[in-house]
Design a protein around this nucleic acid. Sequence first.
DNA 1: AATGAATGAGGATTCATTCAT
DNA 2: AATGAATGAATCCTCATTCAT
Lengths: 193, 193, 193, 193
Amino acid sequence: MNDKHLKILMAAKDVFEEEGYHEAKISEIAKRAGIGKGTVYEYFTSKQSLFEEMVIFLIDMGFDTIDSQIKEQDNAIDKLKVIVEIEKEISLNHGKLFGLILARLSSASETLKTKFYDTRERELKTIEDIISEGVQAGLFKDINTKYFALIFKGAISQAHMNASCNVAKGTEIKEALHISNEIFEILIDSIKS
Amino acid sequence: MNDKHLKILMAAKDVFEEEGYHEAKISEIAKRAGIGKGTVYEYFTSKQSLFEEMVIFLIDMGFDTIDSQIKEQDNAIDKLKVIVEIEKEISLNHGKLFGLILARLSSASETLKTKFYDTRERELKTIEDIISEGVQAGLFKDINTKYFALIFKGAISQAHMNASCNVAKGTEIKEALHISNEIFEILIDSIKS
Amino acid sequence: MNDKHLKILMAAKDVFEEEGYHEAKISEIAKRAGIGKGTVYEYFTSKQSLFEEMVIFLIDMGFDTIDSQIKEQDNAIDKLKVIVEIEKEISLNHGKLFGLILARLSSASETLKTKFYDTRERELKTIEDIISEGVQAGLFKDINTKYFALIFKGAISQAHMNASCNVAKGTEIKEALHISNEIFEILIDSIKS
Amino acid sequence: MNDKHLKILMAAKDVFEEEGYHEAKISEIAKRAGIGKGTVYEYFTSKQSLFEEMVIFLIDMGFDTIDSQIKEQDNAIDKLKVIVEIEKEISLNHGKLFGLILARLSSASETLKTKFYDTRERELKTIEDIISEGVQAGLFKDINTKYFALIFKGAISQAHMNASCNVAKGTEIKEALHISNEIFEILIDSIKS
DNA sequence: AATGAATGAGGATTCATTCAT
DNA sequence: AATGAATGAATCCTCATTCAT
């Protein structure tokens, strides 16, 4: 993956996110990447494949970020907090992109579909592992980690979606994000031993 | 709203859902509605407005369904169960449409955006009210109803998204839905007085 | 085949003939047919299919012309003369189109290929039948009609190609066409009984 | 004309023949010639000029072949037979290329047009000279050599086109080529003294 | 009111050609 | 001399929308 390949992916992410799939023009992506229209096709076979490679790139980049930031924390609660913060950033800033991917999944390649579904599982598994770690460390009660991971992820996502809707409505964002923190506290408290 | 108007809306819902926004052709919508292509424009000014009116129609229809089914139940737990079931149906069968709406929201009219955001709030409020009702009835502990409503909705949504991803992956759906029920039990148990 | 369908076919013939396949623009064909670009696609599914239908149309039209003009003659020699005249017109005015069809045959549909090959056979058969008629009428010697038809067609085609090359070279065309007549005389004389 | 120049011409011939003019890609020609795409432009100024030089090369090569093979025969009939065999090979294996050249002639340079028309004349002249030689040697009757050359060439071309159409149709090729031989016999018999 | 034939704006894609290395 | 990465002109085709009937 050389420099130009990466430039196109980043430009594609911006344009797809701002415009949507059909509204995103290859010429605009090229312009933002600082290259000629034809050059995009030297690196990607089609608009569809550019979209899919971009999604995969973002997913992988997302995991790298999560993995590296989690490693920097040494207890389960702080690790979960890291995940919450990353999810918050994604939800607030890239909610539209998420909807776009969801909407286009049915016309995507099997590779992307699988990647997307596996990603959800892997995210849940990461949370579950952290919780198990907390249980083993005596930090948390001996709960069903799988179910709690699911509840945790759902509640946090919901809180962030709430926040991002409020942002869109122009409501005070601070309060919305405050709720996200409250929810986190409540959930953690409910499993603390 | 006469008969033909409704027919077009229903056909539009099917086609947008199956195909996505740009892939949905006005001619196909007209064909499914059993009318001529030009007639669509007698009832809707443009594709965009047809899409928006369809979304609003679905939202309103959804609330009517929820409201009427809730009224048939007489205790909070059964009412919450009704909501879970309806959400389950939407998540499993109309996940793509949800993504589509989410992805197109930024280019939608302020009316639709507001409607969409208000809808989320109203859904949460409905849940919150049921929980308050349960608290008042002595069924539930005296919890923060707003926060619990959010956790409840998030956890249930997550469980259903899990199920719908499993459906897509071809995994056994029964188990996935079983999880949805388990989550429901856990959440209710955690607030039962 | 309504009026607009025909107009497009005629315009397509002119433009393909003048420009070649790739150099012929759909927009130019539409303009010459006096319609909008999009309208072409209401009548033909693609440029390729327009080309093929045009070829088939020309072939069928050619046969109708030959058949009707032959019927007007009552002896074999005059009938052959009619064929020579029609071939002359085609060769001089539509030689490029013939080359174009030949060159594009390998990427054409099986339907067109078959049509093209059958057409050659049918042309030879028509000539052969006229010769047979002449033999039966005692006008011609009892020759191998199949072989003579082939020699006749080849010689005449060659004479006309000669003429059309001379036209292109700017040489006096009269002399070239004179040769066509001479060849006709020689061939007929060689089989007269 | 060095080695690389020749390699490109040969590769161009193959690709133009297989694909047609526009479908032939410079990159494919370069690949087949075993060189880089840019190198083609060191030897030829454009695709069009490569095409034209290729045609001229083929024509000249064709004449060299005919001339040298004719010289190996010492009587008129064998010499004509040589021409028939070469034409047969060209017609069966390179008919598409001939159509391609014909179709593109109108957009070709004057040089190529002239070359092409002169070639036809020269071919006829070669045949005429052989027939004259046969007449002088007492082998043939004292016929109009010019006209007979034209009939001869036309009849043989037609027979081969017949054969090549039959090949395309999947019909037995042996019989088709048999006809070519029969025609040759008939023509020669008709002028033998 | 209902229709669908006609339209043309708009964009993905291709590939001959250039030119820095 | 040889290369191939980069370019953008050029065009087929789609489909939302219009409007005469």
